[in-house]
Amino acid sequence: MADTADTAEPILELKDVTLKFGETWGLRNVSLDLYPGQTFIIFGAAGSGKTTLLKAVIGLVRVDSGQIKLLGEDVTQMEEHELFGLRSRVGILFQEGGLFDSLLVGENVEYPLVNQQSSAKEGDSQGEEEVECRVRETLRFVELEHTMEKFPSELSGGMRRRVGIARAIVTNPPLVLYDSPTAGLDPITANTIMALIAKQRDVQNTASLLVSHRYQDGEIMADFRYDPEKKELLAIPEEARVSGANGTRFVVMRGGEIVFFGTRHELEASDDGYVKRFVRHEG
């Protein structure tokens, strides 16, 4: 996987992307290249542009200048209705959940599949049974199969987050955007969720942008790998962690700008006061 990085096309390319909300910077000269299967962990203070970055990637917010190439298509040049097809190939978990509270959990998870079908050409659509099957399978993946017939409002915060993840990955998209998947959760639930995200990455080779406030989230993504045989997360051997261009990278944002980009070791070695705030210091 690691050695394909040089030959493979980036799945997502941002070039000098800038966006202003009135006087405040949403994004400021942001450039990055994300390769298939790769994870970027995004840290930053509240209001530093993390959510804006994720939304800009799929054209939910329009940027003022720069270029965003997603799965080979230029998002900045596309009309809203042209974006629908492209967006259906990307999963997204919203910070505030974004679950439709008028729909059942099962219907929420089914939504992207049904939408993908209606935008696909006639004929190659899956049957209803297949959809139902896939919904069950995905809910089982997040260990919530029993909540199919419940409304999101009947679930706990951690369960809703997991439903959100199920909805984001139900189509097995090559890129998933996770906005603060562990925010506001207790450490145990948070670790469960991170394990699911790492598992999805390793089972499907999913690339992801992951906004987080917990340093451990980054550690889990950078240092652990899902083992399909043992069915659990195993630590990656020390020497293999940073090798390859495809490893997990850390991004630190401030005022819409990327102020740090690099590996975990580089992050820990940084002596920038702002960047240091996002590193957990042992002892």
Binding site: E80, R87, V90, G97, G98, F100, D101, P112, N115, S118
Partner: peptide, 15 residues
């Protein structure tokens, strides 16, 4: 809007 359901709709292909 504030629970990002509107964004989710757009993200999932509904106007």
């Amino acid at each position: 809007k504030v629970t990002e359901q509107i964004d989710a709709m757009r993200a999932l292909g509904t106007d």
